[in-house]
Design a protein around this nucleic acid. Structure first.
Ligand SMILES: [Zn+2]
Length: 262
DNA sequence: TTTGATGTTGCTAA
DNA sequence: ATTAGCAACATCAA
């Protein structure tokens, strides 16, 4: 799940659970997710607390009250999630456990270990260090057109390029292009100004709607592709068959009748 | 049993 | 310089 709306949901979850709770200890059950230094992360967290949070694209950053006010950075890969719990056994795929003095624990679960745990001095410097583009919910229409206007590549992989605009992944890219009636392999230089404007507005609409619905596809509007995004799925717009192709190595679902055949 | 799944990176080749 | 294809990472389900 972890694309922009999912990570925003994790942010809401963190805000409502772990904020201002004193940390007793940190335990790494699998160290392969650590991007930099286990020792540094432990030192930053132990005997401190989280006091603020920020999402940049698919990254969740949690500010601590240590001397440097360093931020714990979490990336969720394809299968990462947060779980805050008290009286139950450790989740099966727990990779990092943060133990709080109130008896609760925050687990970072990630079966496939594709996520990352890192430290940042602050969100802005981290965004720069990782060469992330502007967040998909912060970009203006003018900026969006400028960024895409420099590209001739195919629209779907470009929307997913985290160095240009950050936050959109494989599933939401399909949804945004479906709402915009644009075929995923359309070259950007074939899109006119009005189409790019529609694409921008649909991007905002899709992401904001998903966040409002807690990134839960079951709650998404009937007009959305995502709940029908599978082989043998039906287009919510024309009831035609959803087609699956590969674009940039990723499974891509679209409606040939509404989005054209490329 | 083989393939693909919400991601990213690095290499290779036009 | 730009774009595209593929493999790699680890685990599960179809
Ligand atoms: Zn359709």
């Amino acid at each position: 799940m972890p694309e922009l709306p999912d990570v925003e949901q994790f942010k809401k979850y963190a805000d409502s659970t772990i904020m201002n709770q004193q940390i007793k200890d940190v335990e790494f059950i699998d160290k392969r997710m650590i991007a930099f230094s286990e020792k540094a992360i432990k030192k930053t967290l132990k005997e401190h607390q989280f006091i603020n949070s920020k999402r940049i694209g698919k990254f969740l950053l949690l500010e601590t009250d240590d001397e440097m006010h360093k931020w714990l950075v979490l990336h969720f890969g394809m299968t990462g999630e947060l779980e805050y719990f008290k009286d139950k056994k450790t989740p099966k795929y727990a990779r990092m456990l943060i133990h709080f003095k109130n008896g609760y624990h925050l687990s970072l679960n990630d079966p496939r270990l594709l996520g990352k745990i890192d430290l940042a001095d602050n969100p802005e410097s981290y965004q720069k260090r990782k060469e992330l583009g502007v967040d998909a919910l912060d970009v203006s229409e003018k900026q969006f057109k400028e960024i895409l206007g420099k590209k001739k590549s195919r629209i779907k992989p470009t929307l997913m390029n985290q160095h240009l605009i950050t936050g959109i992944g494989n599933v939401y890219a399909d949804e945004i292009l479906f709402q915009s009636k644009i075929h995923p392999t359309t070259n950007i230089d074939a899109l006119n100004n009005k189409t790019l404007g529609d694409l921008y507005k649909n991007m905002q609409m899709v992401l904001k709607t998903a966040i409002k619905d807690n990134a839960d596809p079951k709650k998404f509007p009937d007009s959305f592709l995502i709940p029908n995004r599978r082989t043998k799925g039906k287009c919510p717009n024309c009831a035609g068959n959803i087609k699956k192709i590969k674009v940039a190595g990723r499974g891509t679902y679209f409606c040939p009748s509404c989005q054209g055949n490329g």
